[in-house]
Design a protein around this nucleic acid. Structure first.
Length: 778
DNA sequence: CAACATCTACTTTTT
DNA sequence: GTAGATGTTG
């Protein structure tokens, strides 16, 4: 292990201003004391606890600029890790504008995954890969697993490939190789086949010269551990390490970082991590808040700086957010203080009849704000789950209101894009079996299962890639003449394209490939309504290729940087999930769907228990703190989930807001007198604000409903969201032909029933599926 | 082998 | 309500 001498003495804490006297460099202007401290404390381990809206990114970027400006290190000697591509891009831009240099000056600024990929390509052969290895995404992963399951005669119905992919992910997030997986863990899949499958999967990846997302980190860790010389090289290279959103790091990322920070003894590591434990919202995917909570133990002598001055929100908004998050028990604890100096509007809570009315109301409000001169760009709708977006999109289309969905179904995940990429991947790497398999019969070439199976058998027998096997087979009589000539033509086409790849720009090549393969024609002839859109996407794909120098570079970009530019040029309302909203801010924020079961999400509660609830609460906190001036929450009394209408009870998070800053509204269209604000004398019950979330009125009621409900009893609209899978459906009180009444659809007759799900022909609304708990005998 | 029809399971969040 | 997977037919 190499260890360099310290470059500069650590500045004493009290001397921030004295360090520069009155000649502080201009980039420090406008930073408050703590922020400056964080920028100037370059040496030794540093933990910056940065609350929402306290200028975290500014500190990080200024810090990098400071290190470079004062010649402590060059851009190429600073490793800065972010969690998302968006954050990496933003940091590059901001550092660039501070230093006045191009982005190229910071080759090691990127996400964990992109930096890992870069490292691995340099040393691929040391971990059993070639430098041009393919990066698999979830879809490839699942298909590969399916093949393994089939080969091992494991029933895919009983043991879904998706589930195993999830387990793989978990193991890899925890930094576990096949040998490290605990038997108990692995036993949970396919009668104890888990570990063996994991090993088989890894072997197969190596055969395919491929790595999945988890491998990027895992193989890096292995590389560092097994090749001390390589690790030492990076110890020498990186003089400063910075990590953004540290609260989102998982075990593998932690190990990765630890290894890189080991260049010096822990108390001297120049490692700066920035994060906010209250904004840890990726626990479900392996993030360990513990990493940030434990930092001072990991790096003894670490300095801790708290950024608590909020420059974003009005005091009302901040009060709501702080009060809410105070209900969490496991947190380091910070007290945000507003620096905006404005009380602002109260936080509005609106209760509406259903999600349709919710969309309508919000649409109207936005139009009103627009008339008042607000920019649509300054307005966002943040949802818990992406299915909520649809209703808003539909409504906004009819209103002619400009909107933009951020994060939505990812561009690269679209079928046409994946197909097109598969062609390119084969051109780039003929051994890419997963790509070959994907497009060998797309567009339809008259190749069926039997032909594919022959290819497969040959490939397996000879231990060669599918493409190579095909090459062999077309020289034999094993295939029927028709298939043989088809495949022969295909192989020749690919050879031709590979040849051309050397001479013509890849964007042009892609266009030719799509045309010559008949792929474009396939969609042109498809009369499905979305075909034109797909063709448009293909065009966009080709267009986006123009920015890259090589095909390989483009493919790397696609697999790691999945989001495309979100065209922020036009004025539009942003619609996104709460997860996608982290790090953003808007003047006006709408938070719809504050209902038990949706937010907090039922699944988080079921699977995560108390920790799950606390993470949901942090998610709510993230949502609330996105707002600068105006925060508008809403809840629907009825919502359709899985095509079934369910009535909802208000989210417990609403009970956790301080009454003084909240204004309850009602659209007046509720049925039967039940409204959110209508109970408890026009205000929601507010008990001791620091009591456990489990004891709030909403939760109490939800619990009271559980199990107490019997089929056929009088239906109180007050909540049967909890009538979910736990309902054993014992003895429904209904039978086909029976006349019933439903609050939303009116009178109808039961057509069929299945457990507690009824199919009812309503007199006015037509045939609908509903839960039995929402109708009463009519 | 492909097209069609039917059925089913699914909907949290993503590098 | 949907997209995918499966099954059945020509």
């Amino acid at each position: 292990m190499t260890s360099e001498p310290l470059r500069a003495p650590r500045p004493a804490t009290g001397s921030i201003t004295s360090q520069f006297g009155r000649n502080a460099p201009p980039y420090l202007d406008g930073l408050n004391e703590e922020q400056r401290d964080a920028v100037l404390t370059t040496e030794g381990p540093l933990l910056v606890l940065a609350g929402a809206g306290t200028g975290k990114t500014r500190v990080l970027t200024t810090r990098i600029a400071h290190i470079m400006r004062t010649n402590l290190a060059r851009g190429s000697e600073i490793l800065s890790v972010t969690f998302t591509n968006k954050a990496a891009r933003e940091m590059k831009e901001r550092v660039g504008s501070l230093v006045g240099a191009g982005v190229e000056g910071m080759p090691w600024l990127g996400t964990f995954h992109s930096i890992s990929a870069r490292l691995l390509r340099r040393h691929a052969e040391l971990v059993g890969l070639k430098a041009d290895f393919t990066i698999l995404d979830t879809d490839d992963q699942v298909r590969l697993i399916k093949q393994l399951l089939e080969a091992d005669n494991i029933d895919e119905k009983r043991w879904p490939a998706r589930q195993f992919a999830g387990m793989l992910d978990n193991w890899k997030n925890r930094g576990q190789l096949p040998k490290d997986v605990s038997p108990a863990d692995a036993a949970g899949f396919a009668n104890g086949m888990g570990q063996k499958l994991y090993q088989q999967y890894q072997d197969r990846l190596k055969m395919l010269n491929a790595a999945d997302f988890g491998d990027l980190l895992l193989e890096c860790i292995r590389l560092f551990r097994e090749q001390p010389g390589v690790l030492a090289e990076y110890h020498r290279r990186f003089h400063y390490l910075l990590v953004d959103e540290y609260q989102d790091s998982n075990v593998a990322q932690y190990l990765w970082l630890r290894l890189l920070a080991q260049g010096r003894p822990a108390p001297e590591a120049n490692l700066c991590v920035v994060g906010d434990d209250d904004q840890s919202i990726y626990g479900w995917r392996g993030a360990e808040v513990d990493n940030i909570l434990r930092f001072e133990k990991d790096f003894p002598g670490a300095k801790v700086i708290r950024l608590e001055r909020n420059y974003r929100s009005t005091s009302n908004i901040l009060a709501a957010a702080s009060h809410l998050i105070a209900h969490n028990e496991s947190r380091l604890g910070k007290t945000l203080q507003t620096d905006v100096g404005e009380e602002g509007e109260k936080v509005a809570v609106t209760s509406v009849w259903d999600s349709e009315e919710e969309a309508r109301t919000i649409g109207e409000e936005i139009e009103q704000y627009q008339r008042q001169g607000d920019k649509l760009n300054s307005i966002a709708i943040l949802v818990r789950a992406s299915f909520q977006m649809r209703e808003f999109e539909e409504r906004f289309i009819t209103l002619g209101l400009n909107y933009r969905v951020i994060g939505g179904p990812r561009f690269y995940e679209r079928r046409e894009i994946r197909d097109a990429l598969a062609y390119l991947r084969i051109v780039s790497q003929q051994a890419d079996d997963l790509a070959f398999e994907r497009i060998v019969n797309t567009p339809k070439r008259g190749l069926g299962d039997t032909t594919i199976k022959t290819l497969y058998d040959t490939a397996r027998l000879q231990r060669i890639p599918l493409f190579a096997a095909t090459r062999l087979l077309i020289e034999t009589e094993e295939l029927k003449p028709k298939q043989r000539s088809t495949l022969k033509a295909l192989v020749m086409q690919f050879d031709d394209w590979s040849e051309r790849a050397r001479t013509i720009p890849q964007a042009e090549l892609a266009e030719q490939i799509l045309d010559e393969s008949g792929y474009t024609a396939m969609w042109q002839n498809d009369k499905a309504p979305d075909s034109p859109g797909r063709l448009e996407n293909l065009k966009e794909l080709v267009r986006s290729m123009e920015e890259f120098d090589t095909l390989g570079g483009f493919l790397e970009h696609i697999s790691l940087v999945m989001d495309r530019d979100t065209g922020a040029d036009s004025d539009a309302v942003s619609i996104m999930t709460l997860h996608a909203a982290k790090g953003l801010e808007f003047n006006t924020v709408f938070l719809p769907g504050l209902e038990e079961g949706l937010f907090p999400h039922q699944r988080a509660l079921d699977e995560g228990g108390r920790a799950g609830l606390e993470e949901e609460r942090r998610l709510a906190y993230v949502g609330l703190t996105r707002a600068r001036k105006r925060l508008r929450l809403s809840l629907a009394q009825n919502r359709r989930i899985h095509g079934l209408w369910q009535s909802a009870i208000p989210s417990r998070f609403l009970d956790e807001l301080p009454a003084a800053v909240v204004e309850v509204k009602d659209t007046g269209s509720s049925y039967g007198g039940y409204t959110y604000g209508g109970r408890a004398g026009g205000r929601f019950d507010l008990r001791d604000p620091f009591e456990s979330g489990y004891e709030t009125p909403g939760w109490q009621r939800a619990k009271a409903q559980q199990g107490s409900r019997k089929g056929g009893g009088p239906v109180t609209i007050d909540g049967d969201l909890v009538a979910r899978s736990t309902d054993d459906g014992r003895g429904s009180a209904y039978a086909p032909g029976q006349r019933v009444f439903h609050l939303k659809f009116g009178y109808g007759t039961i057509a069929t029933l299945e457990g507690n799900k009824l199919t009812i022909d309503f007199e006015k609304a037509g045939r609908k599926k509903v839960l039995d708990s929402f109708v009463q005998k009519g």
